[in-house]
Amino acid sequence: MRRRFAEAGRRAFLWQALAVGLLLLGGWWVAGRVEGELAARGIRSGFGFLLQPAGFEIGESLFDFHAGLAYWQAFLVGFANTLRVALPGLLLATVLGALIGFARLSPNFLLRALGTAYVEVFRNVPLLLQLLTWYFLLTEKLPPVADAVEFLPGFFLSKSGLAFPLPAFAVAAGELAWPQRGLLNIEGGATVTPEYLAVLLGLAAYSAAYLAEIVRAGILSVSRGQVEAAAALGLTARQRMRWVVLPQALRLIVPPAGNQYLNLTKNSSLAVVVGYPDLVSVANTTLNQTGQAVECIAILIAVYLALSLATAALLALYNARLLRRGSAA
């Protein structure tokens, strides 16, 4: 018996060693091959290019970027642009998703039907198509910038995006920089481009459909008995929601919602199709200008993996806290 056990152990060890060995060998082979091919074909490699001037402009950015800055700074701008669209997207999607989730549970038939229709439409059409449609609507149906509509004082909407007043620290604290019609463009103030708007709306609308389902499932999971018991205790519908249903539903909602947030962030990589300069778009441009595909793709992968890991860590933290609270209670 002991012999057999030992033999099985040896077999298992052999298997694993083989798998790991094969993997290492495979990785080594691919790496060697890529390296060899790059050298043999006279293609430059290495991350040195990151320190060189990028030489291209980025259409919109949170920082003051210009072409004289280095590639790594361009990547940073791209990453910031990804977050700049993903974070407000999260908020918008959450609000919209919660509203639609509640609508689907409403006693009102019309609201229920609307909610269902929304979910079924937005979930079943590829996000790419939705982004393109939003973008088309914004750039085709809005007036050209020369005839921008000023729907509120200082707010201009046109094919060039939305221009709005912004606190201008440079002018004087507390004063607003007002956009005005310039020769070609709206000048001054702040603008968000139609590319940004399309990505924001597209991501939010798409994710909201999934979040709505998560919210609905979370609320439905709270047993009827509890709600009835609470009602018997004389709690109003609102109190029942606030004190009985939501706290329990939230535990079920948060983990899948967290994944959905991560998906939204990953999906922001589709921004490249409507010309929004997110991380992928910057990596793509850099790849084309320098020809250093391996490096650019490696950076992309590393950044997205880091985001995924961070989300996973946050969720794990939340779960741990819940468990601790659960056991304390």
């Binding site: 691919v30 091959r33 890529v34 091919e37 790059l38 990953k266 999906n267 990589s269 589709l270 490249v272 992928v280 793509n284 790849l287 595909a293 391996v294 793709i297 992309l300 992968i301 997205y304 993996l305 985001l307 995924s308 890991l309």
Partner: peptide, 23 residues
Amino acid sequence: IELVRGLPLIPVLFMAAFLFPLF
């Protein structure tokens, strides 16, 4: 599994377009 699930599809497609041919 976790590596791939952490990635958006676009970089993976870029790999197919730009990297696969090299090795």
